[in-house]
Amino acid sequence: MNQNDIDLIRHARKGSTEAFTAIVRNYKNFVYRTVLAILQNRQDSEDVAQEVFIKAYRALAGLRDARTFPSWLAQIATRTALDFIQSKRKNQTVELDSEKFVVNDDIHRAANIRLDLENALGHLSEEHRVVTILRVNGFDYEEIAQILGIPIGTVRSRLHNARMHLRQLLQDERGDNG
């Protein structure tokens, strides 16, 4: 996180909409990527990622240390995405699995590496997807533990299980494709 971002957050906290626009510009991929990795659905992810920024805007005045902004924003993003999954499950209006990137076997065989990975991520549990995307976003194990409110040992084991699972899935898919 650079000094420019810290200044932007300080200005936005004082009510500058221009500063917040710049923050959205700088962090939109970070938030969208996080939410998409958890939800595995592009349309829902766009809506939820927007909601994340609205929540951040409303709560920004309460952020004490501007330097903790990335982990604070990641926390909002993961919670909002997980809450969205829970509320969908409660309402049972749409089956999450039907919208995942998981595709049938025929399409599967023609998929490229990117789709392989998206498919593989779709096979992971939510908690494994969350730790994986937080790690990809550059947080260390301790920060992930703080964001999710879980012990660092749990982070380590979840990341390991997720990575082993991904390795296996990608190997299987490459085997199928080959």
Binding site: T21, V24, I54, T132
Partner: peptide, 25 residues
């Protein structure tokens, strides 16, 4: 790990995402 990092980091927000957020803001 390299594949996961490389592929996931390529994910970008939709084109009009920023405008939509700022309208709501």
């Amino acid at each position: 790990t390299a594949l996961v990092f490389e592929q996931l980091n390529r994910t970008v927000a939709p084109i009009n995402f920023e405008d939509s957020v700022m309208q709501q803001i």
